[in-house]
Design a protein around this nucleic acid. Structure first.
Lengths: 144, 144
DNA sequence: CTTCAATTGTTGAATATTCAATATTTTCAA
DNA sequence: TTGAAAATATTGAATATTCAACAATTGAAG
């Protein structure tokens, strides 16, 4: 008996890629109002706790490879959104901080992102959204 | 009363990106056994129905921008995995077909991908997996 | 202590992706 | 039937990402 070949649209990896692409595209569209890529929103958001975060820590948090992050941070430093400070306790490390300008921008970006979440809640539903979030968190957990 | 600032890890957009990155990384790792990027697996899988697919159709299906797809197909044509045929009914279009060599490779890749799905099923569970797939499909639907 | 391995971040070259412009063909309104 | 607009795919230049190598610092074993 021939084994049926699963269509690509049934693979979890594909569904995740597709959903991610779509949601990301929508978010990108909103953030483009401020001329900022999604990754910079993430960086600013992580740094808005006001604490210093090392590059490694940041790279993990914002889902970027180290060299990519370095170069993106270079741009953000030029735009005076963030700044580098050498970690006094471990001089291999660089601590990143958000600037005042960065904080102002971060707030605008957050409200754009919240807009999107609300839009999703409307079209997709409260129940589904929170259930989906729960399942995604647990998938991520189980993958470590 | 101050509005609490949502951590980035609670945004749906972020959870999707994180889950996608992780699952994709795992799949990439397996497919690297055959030296093939995830996108080429998708392309071969879509073409393995034996029918001709136009570039536009393919680009949508495999989640790539048109110019990116064109260049990836160029490589795959060099590797004789696929070939181009001008659509006789609409000569603006190019129909892509999978070659015999492509079919052989596609089978190997599929079993690697199925391995991964099975691995996910084990660590994450049948129930969660199918529920997650259902929710993702419905999210994608509701975004169109 | 000293030395060697591990950690952290950056750089430059190679590669890949994207944007805007182009070429070709088809569609469709006048 | 003609001419303008739309659809399709590709190209080249600009941009971004990745890989491998490097530099600096710390950790840790002997």
């Amino acid at each position: 008996m021939a084994k049926l070949n699963t269509p690509i649209t049934e693979h979890l990896a594909y569904l995740l890629a597709q959903a991610n692409r779509e949601i990301n595209r929508q978010l990108e569209l909103r953030l483009s109002k401020e001329g900022v890529p999604v990754e910079q929103w993430r960086i600013l958001k992580v740094l808005s706790d006001g604490n210093g975060h090392s590059m490694g820590e940041l790279a993990d948090a914002v889902l970027l490879n180290h060299p990519t992050l370095t170069k993106m941070i270079d741009r953000m430093v030029s735009d005076t959104l963030v700044y580098r400070v050498q970690d006094p306790n471990d001089r291999r490390k660089v601590l990143m901080f958000i600037s005042d300008r960065g904080k102002v921008l971060s707030k605008k970006l957050n409200s754009l992102a919240v807009d999107q979440e609300e839009h999703i809640l409307e079209s997709y539903g409260d129940k589904s959204t929170s259930e989906l979030k729960r399942l995604l968190e647990s998938l991520i957990d189980s993958s470590n």
